[in-house]
């Protein structure tokens, strides 16, 4: 099993932190995990991208080549990484920020940043909401480990806000998928 994730958007959306949290949770779950981030031309213009590889065996090549899961938090990120995905790959977008998301059964649309604002009063926890959404959809790691990892990584003052954001991401996703 080797799962490749790409979390893409813009600087300040906390995607690298989200990647680290997911990798840490996976590690606590007994999986192998590698997290990388891109620099250079791709990272210009405020674009940010974190990549995570989860595996039950040693991770050899540490870079994502054809992601199985893509999170796109900006229209540019969706254009660049979300429109030409490999068969079977899943795309998750922030439905309010990414109007150009494709209509496909492989594309999951969630009001990620809106949930963050509703729960915490600020958009800053959108990355954690996204983790809740992604993990509820695709079951990468156990929810307990994910919450643990969130508690450890986010600034002390915002731990409770972020845990609520995580849980709301999970709850919202569960409800929405049941409705479907």
């Amino acid at each position: 099993m080797r799962k490749e994730l790409r979390l893409s958007g813009s600087g300040g959306q906390g995607l690298i932190t989200a990647g680290i949290i997911l990798a840490e949770a996976a590690m606590r779950d007994g999986l192998e995990a590698v997290q990388t981030q891109s620099y250079g031309p791709e990272a210009r213009g405020g674009a940010a991208k974190a990549e995570v590889i989860l595996s039950d065996a040693e991770v050899d090549y540490p870079k994502v080549t054809s992601p199985d899961y893509i999170l796109a938090m900006t229209p540019i990120a969706c254009d660049r990484y979300g429109c030409n995905i490999k068969p079977g790959a899943k795309l998750v977008v922030d439905e309010d920020l990414v109007p150009n998301a494709p209509d496909s059964k492989h594309c999951y649309k969630f009001p990620i940043t809106k949930i963050s604002k509703e729960i915490t009063g600020r958009p800053l926890s959108a990355n954690i909401v996204a983790l809740g959404v992604l993990n509820e959809l695709f079951k990468f790691v156990s929810p307990e480990r994910l919450e643990e990892a969130v508690r450890q990584r986010v600034p002390k003052a915002s731990v409770e806000d972020n845990v609520r954001a995580l849980n709301e991401g999970i709850r919202y996703t569960r409800e929405k998928m049941q409705d479907k």
Partner: peptide, 8 residues
């Protein structure tokens, strides 16, 4: 690559 990647 190895300097900047995070790993277990």
């Amino acid at each position: 690559i190895i300097a900047h990647m995070r790993e277990k």
